[in-house]
């Protein structure tokens, strides 16, 4: 590796580490194929989001300090999850004794597609993926990190994740009836408001299935885990994938 290549700290959210190692591997390999120097700090655990969203931000300071110490030494921090990135950027508690490092981490952490388009300046990935997909815009990436234009605001349309996939041969992206409605995961909401959470997930999947989607593609495994759980239970004929798996598969 050349010395002047920026050094990326790979941040793999805890549930991806435990449940979806293939998404983490795809993220790592994709970044490497794009010429990046990537290290996965082995001591990393969790960003603290589940605690904060449940109302315990104050109790997550230890987790936040740990995160900052693990990642402050990197030029960039990249994760295959808009939700966890948003948490680190905007909702982790201020740790006064690590102020400088926290600021560095917060201004240099990126969601994967955002990093590839905005920092690596890659317009799109070339390859072939002959499938009919539906895109699930996860809320925190969409309305928090602004990874795409949303249906609520009057702004020119864009979508950083789909932009990377726009030149894939054979790919068909369907137009959904509700293009960016929440899937109902919402962290502890999935359990504390179980009935609505499952109904929202069912409705989201139905929108894709009604349009003949083969694969629901998203950028947050938490949403995908929730929808996959419902789709499996209901025996829906649809697959779910993280976009990193697709891009890593076609780029080789």
């Amino acid at each position: 590796m050349k010395k002047d290549v920026p050094h990326i700290g790979l941040f793999i959210p805890c549930y991806i580490d435990q449940f979806y190692p293939n998404v983490a591997i795809a993220t790592l390999e994709l970044l490497e194929k794009l010429g990046c120097k990537v290290t996965y700090p082995l001591g990393q655990t969790c960003c603290g989001q589940p605690m904060s969203n449940a109302g315990f931000e104050a109790d997550s300071e230890g987790t936040t300090s740990k995160f900052i110490s693990d990642f402050a030494k990197f030029d960039y921090i990249v994760a295959p999850s808009g939700s966890c990135v948003l948490h680190v950027k905007e909702h982790s508690p201020k740790v006064d004794k690590l102020k400088k490092n926290q600021e560095h981490v917060q201004s240099n952490i990126y969601e994967l597609s955002e990093f590839i388009t905005d920092v690596l300046k890659v317009d799109s990935i070339k390859g072939s993926f002959p499938h009919k997909i539906g895109f699930h815009a996860s809320c925190h990436g969409l309305r928090g990190l602004r990874l795409a234009s949303d249906s609520e605001r009057n702004e020119p349309p864009f979508n950083k994740t789909l932009q990377l996939m726009k030149d894939l041969e054979g790919l068909e992206v369907v137009e959904l009836t509700r293009k960016d409605e929440c899937c109902g995961f919402g962290g502890t909401f999935a359990v504390s408001e179980e009935a609505i959470s499952v109904q929202m997930g069912k409705d989201r999947i139905a929108d894709h299935v009604d349009k003949g989607v083969e694969i629901i593609v998203g950028g947050d495994m938490s949403c995908i885990m929730h929808m996959q759980g419902i789709a499996t239970r209901d025996k829906d004929n649809v697959q779910l994938m993280h976009f990193a798996e697709i891009l890593n598969q076609v780029i080789s």
Binding site: I12, P21, N22, Y40, L42, V198, K202, Q228, G229
Partner: peptide, 26 residues
């Protein structure tokens, strides 16, 4: 179990990413 009422759990992998990384990169 509020998760399992309407949803299945993910299929569980043999090893975590961390274990994979240690074997393959580190």
């Amino acid at each position: 179990n509020a998760w399992g009422k309407g949803r299945n759990l993910p299929n569980l992998p043999e090893e975590s990413f961390k274990d994979w990384y240690k074997k393959n990169r580190n």
